[in-house]
Design a protein around this nucleic acid. Structure first.
Lengths: 219, 219
DNA sequence: CTTCACCAAACGGTATACCGTTGCGAGTTT
DNA sequence: AAACTCGCAACGGTATACCGTTTGGTGAAG
């Protein structure tokens, strides 16, 4: 183990404000994010806005047209399936890699589960759910893998946020189910081999997909 | 199928020049890439340089210190193992996804193999090798997956370039072996199921790892 | 009513300028 | 001779300004 395995690089105020606005749905998908307009809006110059737009493109929240204009990403169900396939590919591997190191110290995961049980809102549960998975990615010891996953997380949050707002997500038993399946996973890490943990994580992701509603979308 | 599945976004002159210089080893690993100095060197202002440095960080060729300074990435053997694990994770999945669509049109892959057979230098073979794999990633139909892979490719080229220059890579039979294993893969795509193609790709990556020399590095 | 041509506003790309901070080396002290 | 300090040079962050291109709307022609 080396450093804390890549904390988010340099928290940029402009970027995080824009990110929040997009994730929270304050800006309609497909909206043009003109540098000048955003700069005026946020009270900064175009340069940090420019930087923020590039960072957000990397995180999949913004996409550029071939003429260099930035738009808030408009996700299609197909794009969601792509994300899902990647979760299903990366996370079981992360679970396998993380298993040996995790066996000895599951306190972080347990603390997360506890917090999930106390969570008041569904959106909070969602964030804690993703935090749980990110803890495992971080424990994998593969910084590049964690980096790839982080670049997917934002897009996932974008989707889940929209689902929540459109009330198309089922809230019944969500928290309890999350807590119990996560408990299963922790138990698996505590007692089972890495290969079993890998399979367990795969099943967990499969179950998560099943739990999601039919996906809306314009495409 | 939709668009050509994400051609490299907007080819930026400054970025590609810097990228080339790093990949070709003209700049020592760990070197500070000061915006002003690079800007003077390339005859542009700091703004495009800034943009280029961010893009290169995304591609894993540059890393920023916590004070915002950009350095040419200094790869450790551990970092290479991380990349290898990710190839081993992503590419078989890509092969499985690409298999159905590829069965009908293998001409691009065959053309690549033909070019590999005619390649003059080992470095050219390496590039064509990566091109071959990228064709499969692109054929997977998963744009996000392709994007992730592309973000790994640059780092791989960085490694392979350094290996070539340090003469620590075996050149004997490299070209022939690449051509023959790739031919196997194409034959697999032509006649076998997606699941078989996935396994075949996994074996191919495993073999590639085996073929690499013991990795040098300061860490 | 539709289509085309043209023009003005807006946008992105880039250069330049200013400022606070960092980092490094020279000079001094112990 | 080693360590500490002070100061300056250089860097990154950001604002502003200029230019070429794109875009969207308007008015005229078919």
């Amino acid at each position: 183990m080396k450093q804390p395995l890549a904390s988010t690089p340099r928290p940029d105020r402009t970027t995080s404000i824009l990110q929040r606005r997009i994730l929270d749905g304050w800006i309609e998908p497909g909206t043009l994010l003109a540098e000048s307009a955003v700069a005026r809006e946020l009270g900064v110059s175009r340069v940090p806005v420019r930087e923020a737009l590039f960072a957000l493109e990397r995180d999949g929240l913004v996409e550029f047209s071939d003429t260099g204009r930035a738009y808030v990403k408009d996700l299609s169900p197909h794009a969601f399936e792509e994300l899902y396939v990647l979760r299903l590919t990366l996370e079981p591997v992360a679970a396998r890699l993380a298993a040996p190191g995790l066996r000895g110290d599951l306190s972080a995961l347990e603390k997360n589960i506890e917090a999930t049980g106390r969570a008041a809102s569904l959106i909070k549960v969602t964030h804690l759910d993703l935090d749980f998975h990110e803890l495992i990615l971080a424990a994998s010891g593969n910084a590049r893998l964690l980096k790839l996953w982080r670049s997917l997380r934002n897009e996932l949050e974008l989707w889940l946020g929209r689902l929540h707002r459109s009330k198309e997500i089922q809230t019944r038993g969500t928290c309890e189910e999350t807590v119990s399946t996560h408990r299963d996973l922790v138990e698996c890490f505590r007692t089972q081999s890495a290969a079993v943990c890998e399979r367990k994580m795969r099943e967990h992701i499969l179950g998560w997909r099943e739990w999601l509603p039919v996906l809306p979308g314009k495409e």
